[in-house]
């Protein structure tokens, strides 16, 4: 698929946003500036951005605990995301969601989920809305190889298929559910499971190439928008960091050769080279872009720092649309 140069540059911009945002978040959590933990998408930027940019601005998306990349890939502003990570009032969820439960409804991000697989039915519901109300919107559910073994995925795939819902099931196969190698707990090939539900299953072997991911997901999105129903897309990728930042395990469950081979295929660096080789941007432009995105991340951190902490009463806000009981 031929994409406009602006689109290609925007892909790189969004991948850089995820990379720099998560690198900063990783530092901040280790310094105690972010409470709790974070799960970074470093190494998986191509897979996230390729999928998000295959969607339109008004389309819907849900995700999981590895959560920052999804809304950033969908175009969310960084400031409220960072403020959320530090638990501040200006956070996108007013400091009540935190790293694992980001949502930015303005860009169609209907929520990340700390429960593996649990947001897949939510995305299915958004696709049902589109179908019943005739809005033409497409829904995309991000989930990992771990969630590929949750029952709700197959309930959702079956329902979406019989109702011909406009949804893309996107398996981000980074090959490990925390420390458990996917192949030791997953029978067969995830993408091939689609056939049992009467929908196409695509497997993107090179999830480090943003264009390859984009083309595959775009095909699925077009199919959904044309009323032809759901598609399962499995993208092979790799997380460069630990499952969560600061996590130390007794065993090194990923062998060094494997890790090294994947680290060489850094999606952000690879696409930078591609843009240069294709003459879409020169080195100076790309370096300027990197500085610009770094400044955006700095500004996001500053926004988070300037934000007040939430008032104690916020703990009881939005339990319901109208306050009663604890919310009164």
């Amino acid at each position: 698929m031929t994409l406009a140069n602006d689109t290609l540059l925007e892909m790189q911009r969004r991948m850089l946003r995820i990379r720099y945002f998560d690198e900063r978040a990783s530092k901040m959590v280790k310094r105690g500036e972010i409470p709790g933990t974070v799960h970074t998408s470093i190494g998986q930027e191509a897979q996230v951005v390729g999928a998000c940019m295959a969607l339109g601005d008004g389309d819907y998306m849900t995700g999981n605990h590895r959560s920052h990349g999804h809304p950033i890939g969908k175009g969310a502003a960084l400031g409220p995301l960072m403020a959320e990570l530090v638990g501040k009032a200006w956070g996108v969820c007013e400091g009540k969601g935190g790293s694992m439960h980001l949502a930015d409804f303005k860009v169609g991000s209907l929520g990340e989920s700390g429960i593996v697989g649990s947001s897949i039915p939510i995305a299915t519901g958004a696709a049902l809305s589109s179908k019943v109300l005739g809005t033409g919107k497409v829904s995309l559910a991000f989930f990992g190889d771990g969630a590929a073994n949750q029952g709700c995925l197959y309930e959702a795939m079956n329902l979406a298929s019989v109702w011909k819902l406009p949804i893309v099931f996107l398996c981000e196969n980074n090959q490990y559910a925390l420390s458990t190698p996917a192949h030791t707990v997953t029978a067969g090939v995830v993408a091939e499971r689609a056939h049992g539900f009467g929908m196409p299953g695509l497997r993107v072997e090179d999830g480090q190439s943003v264009l390859t991911v984009h083309d595959a997901v775009r095909e699925a999105v077009d199919r959904a928008r044309a009323g032809k129903g759901p598609t399962l897309v499995e993208v092979l990728t790799y997380r460069f960091n630990e499952h969560s930042e600061g996590l130390r395990l007794a065993v090194d469950y990923r062998n060094a050769a494997e890790k090294e081979a994947w680290l060489k295929r850094d999606p952000v660096k690879m696409f930078r080279s591609y843009l240069e080789e294709q003459g879409i941007a020169d080195a100076a432009m790309l370096t300027a872009m990197e500085a610009e995105i770094m400044a955006e991340v700095d500004a996001a951190v500053q926004f988070a720092e300037e934000s007040p902490f939430p008032e104690p009463s916020v703990a009881f806000k939005d339990i319901y649309t109208e306050p009663f009981g604890a919310g009164q």
Binding site: Y60, T62, L110, S118, I120, P121, I122, A123, T124, G125, A126, A127, L128, S129, S130, V132, L133, T135, S139, C152, E155, A156, N158, L159
Partner: peptide, 14 residues
């Protein structure tokens, strides 16, 4: 999925 689908649909206009 019935329950989750209803939640997602409710969040998006139904």
């Amino acid at each position: 999925v019935m329950v989750g689908t209803a939640a997602g649909a409710a969040m998006t206009g139904l």
